[in-house]
Every structure is written in structure tokens, then in C-alpha cells.
Design a protein around this nucleic acid. Structure first.
Length: 582
RNA sequence: GUCCCCGUAGCUCAGCCGGAUAGAGCAUCAGAUUCCUAAUCUGAGGGUCGCAGGUUCGAAUCCUGCCGGGGACGCCA
């Protein structure tokens, strides 16, 4: 059991005993590492939080709580202090921390795994880019974020489904089809000249045209558009999706479900959903005030089909049917999220670009409406990534078809670099991505700093195996190891940092913020590199001591716990923990 | 006009479901290598946490209003 879970239980028990109330509500009690190391190893706010409901002064309750904790945990706790407004600070015995080290080693690759999710299903939808071309760099961040979040939730015990919504029903895929049809004619030998404005100019449609020519010969050319368009559209969308899957695979991303918007329409699910909502009074015919902001030339007042999102916290009601009679994107999305709910997801997460900020309230309103308040949607918005090369912004022109693709970035700097850099920032903060900087091999590059900690640990193992040829990775038999040589404050500090991993995972998972894991890993790396360097000043602290096998084994246990913690964290982020960097 | 995000050290950013003297990296300055990888480490200086109120034992963190930056606002998805 990790230290925080352990002592949360002990403190709750002590508090109930002192209060003489076995049903005392301890939900607001926290156990955390104090900011100041001088305050000990653990601090709890129990006295401040509980004293009011007991009619006691915080300090008085704290004194009694401290005495009880000192009594009940005598072997594990070396000091209990009451400080400030009523904090109870605990200092734990070195042997307790060595026990934590033993626990970490026993957990092995599963260190930090937890069951706070209790196997509950969570649906994480991410990427969901239009299937009209290759993924560009803008998709990168949401892709990596969504994937790491899914990993994180999985590690915290949720049953995660990774989902991609294919927008294959709008006007854009028709444009795609027309663009592909042009390439088809080109493949048949026609000179099509410049790709007209409004069609997709990219070369990536040429293979689609070629494939159509191979399959149909010039058979499509004789058809009317309404005949060839569905055929070409299907072929083009399928081809784009295959390309997108390839791009995602290059980033180490694989979705469980690809969900087609068109399938919703064709199965009548949208109409059915709107009927359901209409029955409940959440869909009605009405008028909307003109949109504010940018004046819209072609706006005209008309009666239309609206979703009563204001009943669920949105600012205005939202249209569901366009003037041409087709459904709005929002209408399909409502049906889609209803489908998620009916597939058993009460917890949904959508990862979107920051430009979709205006969409959040209505979507959350919709999820409430279609689930009868049973489901909750969290929308994670990812801010823009600005590309730089040696400090100079990289210019892109989408119209000319000149944009940096996700593949370009991955091919140039590597998947691990892309992933860790994208995750080394809060999702809603903008991110500068400099091709030069992110591949720099120095400590100001967190990718290398963290990777190197893991590689360095394995370098130690390799060296240890030369000194003690019977040893091989994993170096330490957990049960048998005598850890008493691990006693220096810097070594214990590293254990304390490693012991925070489970807590980091659960808190990051519960707030849906994978970047916390990335920052934590940097902290572990820093503590480890520091200890390594201490071996220069204090040779006895070196991990490998040829003259002293027992202490070497104890140190190797610490190094191994570090390596497996870093590896576990990196795997959550989807980064490969490398064993050597030369 | 309304809504969302951001505003913390010279720079880039953590910390934000309330906790004690607000942290890290870069940059600056001063140091460490007969060494398990110097791709590293140690130390120093550097702050009205945008501003003003409020909530409370306690606010960078929660609430309200303002200022500044970005984004969104029926028939794009």
C-alpha cells in the first residue's frame, strides 16, 4: 500500500478514536507531503477540517490527534508535531521508507496502477479529424493528449474505449469526392490543368484517382454526378481514413472504435434522437435572434428546429436543421453522444481544438438531455501549437496545400519527442514547438532529461553485471534484499519521490490531466541525477561498490525502483523508455 | 454585446476540487570531472501570483467586477 493511502486510513482511525465518533466524516481530510521538507514527511489538515464539527479548537484537537498517532504508529512514526493553525506533521522512520521501496519493487511494472476507476467505462473521443486529407500538425496535440489521457485512465482502473468520430456526412466529403474525381480523370489521361479553387489540391488524392481508374476504367466518366459521387466518395473517404490510421500509428495511436457520422444518418438515428427530444419538450420550432459579433450578410429570420439547450445551462437554443433541410453538425453529434450513452458510457470525454470552445456548453447540455442527466461529458480543449525552426516561425499556407503534416513532424523529430513535448504542457496553454530545440540533447529538453534518467539506470545495471557477473536485470530479488544500506537523506528523498507516483497517477486521472505525469517524471529524473552526482563527492554513495556486495544490491534496488517508475510513467505518456542513449 | 481559455521570477512554464516562508527550467553569477555516461550536478541572486473587492482560521487557488492577450458566437465540421 502506498504511503498516502496507508496514512489516510491511520489518520481517519485516530481521528475517530479521539472524537469518540466512529462515523466521523473524514472526506475533507487530506494527507500530503508538506511543501517544506523541514515539516516532516506527511502533513494532514485533519484537525482544522474536523474540529468545527466537534466544537473544539483546531490546536486542541490536533494535540490529541498527534498523541494518538504517535501511540498507534509508534514503530513507523518518529515524530509528530502540531504546527501553524493546526497541521499535524508526521516524520516517518527510515525503515518505513525502505518498506515503501520494497513495495515499489514488489509492484514492479504495475507500480502506481490503481483501481479508483473501479472498472467503470469511460469513452475518450479524440482526433476525429475530417477524412479529407492527411493529418496536419494541428491534430498532433489532441491526438497525443487523448491517447495519453486514455492510457492514464486505464492505469487508474477505468475501462477505456478510444473513439474516432468520422465526419463523413457533410459537404466537405462531397468536395473531397469531386477533387478525387478530377484525379480520376487525370489518371485516365485527361489534362485537368490547375485544380480549381474550392477543391482539394493535394497530391494525396492522385492514388485515389489511379485506383478508381484501375477499378472502373472510364466507366464513371459517363455517369451523372449524382451517380458517381457516392462511389467516389466512399473510395476517397476509405483511402483518407487508411492514411490517417497510418499517420496515427506512426505516433503510436490506435483507436478502438471508428464511428461514422453517415451511418447515424442512414440508420435514422438522428431523426429518432430528435423525436425523442421533441417528445420531452427539448426540441421545438422557434425563432432565434441574429448572431452577434461579425455581421452576417445572408442572415434571415426564419422559424427553425431548435434544441432547448438553455434548459441545460447553455446561453441560447441551438439549431438542428439547416435552411436546406439537412441536419446541422450539432444534430448528428447529439445523436452520436446518445449512442455513446446507450452503449453504456456515463462518462465521456471529448478532446477538441481550442477553437471549439463555443461548442462545449451546448454539447454538455445535449449529453444531459439525451441521458436524462445520467451521463457527464468533459470536454478537453487543446490550444494551438506554434511551429518554429531555430526561433523562426514556420509559415504555412493551407490554400496552396503547403502545410506541415503530422507525419512530417514525426518523421523529423521522432515519435517520443513529439509525444513528450506535447504532454509537457497543460492542454489549455499554448505551445511553441521548435524543431531545433526539441531535439537538442541537453537538460533544458525534458525529453532527453527524463529518457536519460532511465538510460542511466540501465547503464548502472550493465556496469553492475560486469562487477558481479552473476547479476542480471532485474537486479534485485525483492524479498531477499537487505536494504539497510539505503540510508542517506538523498537516497531516502528519492524513495519519497518514487512513493508519490501512485498519488500522481490518481490525481492526474481524476482531473484528466496527463501533463502532471510528465512533470512528475521530470522530478524523479532530477532527484535521480542528483543522487548519481553525489557519488562523485561521496564515493560510498555510488550505486556500485565492488568491495561491498550487500550495499551494492541495496543501491541497485533503489535504482531499479527508479527505472521502473520512470518506465511506467513514460508508458502512460506513450513514450518508449530507452535503455541506452549513445 | 455574450460566452470560453490565458495572465505567476528577465524568458518559457508548473502549482489552482483552499493550506504553512509561491516552485522548476532557461538566462545571469560562483563552483564540481583521476567519476557507475559532465547528455549531469551543487550553490547564489531574482516575485505587488494582472488590478480591486468579497467568502474564511487560512486565497496564486473559490466568488464578483474591471484591465490586458487569444478564441468562439444559425445554415463549417
Amino acid at each position: 500500500m502506498d504511503v498516502f493511502t496507508d496514512f489516510a486510513a491511520r489518520i481517519a482511525e485516530a481521528a475517530r478514536l479521539v472524537a469518540g465518533d466512529s462515523a466521523l466524516d473524514v472526506s475533507k481530510v487530506t494527507v500530503e507531503p508538506p511543501r517544506e521538507a523541514a515539516h516532516g514527511d506527511l502533513a494532514t489538515n485533519a484537525a482544522m477540517v474536523l474540529s468545527r464539527q466537534l466544537g473544539l479548537k483546531p490546536r486542541d484537537f490536533a494535540d490529541r490527534l498527534a498523541a494518538e498517532l504517535a501511540r498507534a504508529s509508534a514503530g513507523d512514526v518518529t515524530a509528530v508535531d502540531v504546527a501553524g493553525p493546526g497541521f499535524v506533521n508526521l516524520t516517518l522512520a527510515d525503515e518505513y521508507w525502505r518498506g515503501q521501496l520494497r513495495n515499489i519493487l514488489a509492484s514492479g511494472e504495475a507500480h502506481g496502477r490503481s483501481d479508483i476507476g473501479r472498472g467503470e467505462p469511460v469513452n475518450v473521443e479524440y482526433v476525429s479529424a475530417n477524412p479529407t486529407g492527411p493529418l496536419h500538425v494541428g491534430h498532433c496535440r489532441g491526438a497525443v493528449f487523448g491517447d495519453a489521457l486514455a492510457n492514464l485512465l486505464d492505469y487508474a482502473g477505468f475501462r477505456v474505449t478510444r473513439e474516432y468520430y468520422i465526419n463523413d456526412a457533410g459537404a466537405q466529403v462531397d468536395t473531397l469526392a469531386r477533387s478525387a474525381f478530377l484525379r480520376y480523370r487525370e489518371a485516365l489521361g485527361e489534362d485537368v490543368g490547375e485544380i480549381p479553387e474550392g477543391l482539394y489540391p493535394g497530391n494525396y488524392l492522385k492514388p485515389v484517382g489511379r485506383a478508381l481508374a484501375d477499378e472502373f476504367g472510364d466507366g464513371l466518366r459517363a455517369m451523372a454526378e449524382h451517380e458517381w459521387l457516392p462511389i467516389v466518395r466512399t473510395a476517397a473517404v476509405d483511402s483518407m481514413l487508411a492514411m490517417i490510421r497510418d499517420d496515427l500509428a506512426a505516433l503510436g495511436i490506435r483507436h478502438d472504435v471508428f464511428f461514422s457520422e453517415r451511418s447515424l444518418q442512414e440508420s435514422g438515428r438522428i431523426a429518432e434522437t430528435l423525436a425523442y427530444l421533441r417528445e420531452r419538450g427539448d426540441v421545438y420550432e422557434g425563432h432565434l435572434p441574429p448572431p452577434k459579433g461579425q455581421p452576417q450578410e445572408d442572415w434571415e429570420d426564419r422559424e427553425q428546429t431548435l434544441f432547448r439547450s438553455t434548459a441545460f445551462g447553455d446561453d441560447v437554443d441551438r439549431p438542428l436543421v439547416k435552411s436546406d433541410g439537412s441536419y446541422t453538425y450539432f444534430a448528428s453529434d447529439i445523436a452520436y453522444h446518445r449512442d455513446k450513452f446507450e452503449r453504456g458510457f456515463a462518462a465521456m470525454i471529448d478532446v477538441l481544438g481550442a477553437d471549439h470552445g463555443g461548442y462545449v456548453k451546448r454539447m454538455q447540455a445535449a449529453v444531459k438531455a439525451v441521458s436524462g442527466g445520467q451521463a457527464e461529458l468533459d470536454v478537453k480543449l487543446c490550444q494551438l501549437v506554434k511551429l518554429f525552426r531555430a526561433g523562426e516561425p514556420v509559415r504555412m499556407s493551407k490554400r496552396a496545400g503547403e502545410f506541415v503534416t503530422l507525419r512530417d513532424v514525426v518523421d523529423e523529430v521522432g515519435r517520443d519527442v513529439v509525444r513528450l513535448i506535447m504532454l509537457y504542457r497543460k492542454n489549455e496553454a499554448p505551445l511553441d514547438f521548435d524543431f531545433e530545440k526539441v531535439t537538442e540533447q541537453s537538460k533544458d529538453n525534458p525529453v532527453f532529461y527524463v529518457q536519460y534518467a532511465h538510460a542511466r539506470a540501465h547503464s548502472v545495471f550493465r556496469n553492475a553485471a560486469e562487477v558481479f557477473p552473476d547479476l542480471r536485470f532485474p537486479m534485485v530479488n525483492t524479498e531477499a534484499a537487505d536494504l539497510s544500506a539505503v540510508a542517506h537523506p538523498a537516497e531516502l528523498a528519492l524513495i519519497k519521490t518514487l512513493a508519490q507516483f501512485p498519488r500522481t497517477v490518481t490525481s492526474a486521472a481524476s482531473v484528466h490531466e496527463p501533463h502532471r505525469v510528465a512533470f512528475y517524471l521530470y522530478e524523479v529524473a532530477s532527484s535521480f541525477h542528483g543522487l548519481w552526482n553525489l557519488g562523485k563527492d561521496v564515493p560510498q554513495l555510488r550505486f556500485i561498490n565492488p568491495a561491498d556486495r550487500p550495499s551494492t544490491l541495496a543501491r541497485l534496488a533503489l535504482v531499479q525502483a527508479t527505472a521502473l517508475t520512470v518506465a511506467a510513467g513514460l508508458r502512460i505518456l506513450g513514450v518508449e523508455p530507452v535503455e541506452e542513449m549513445r
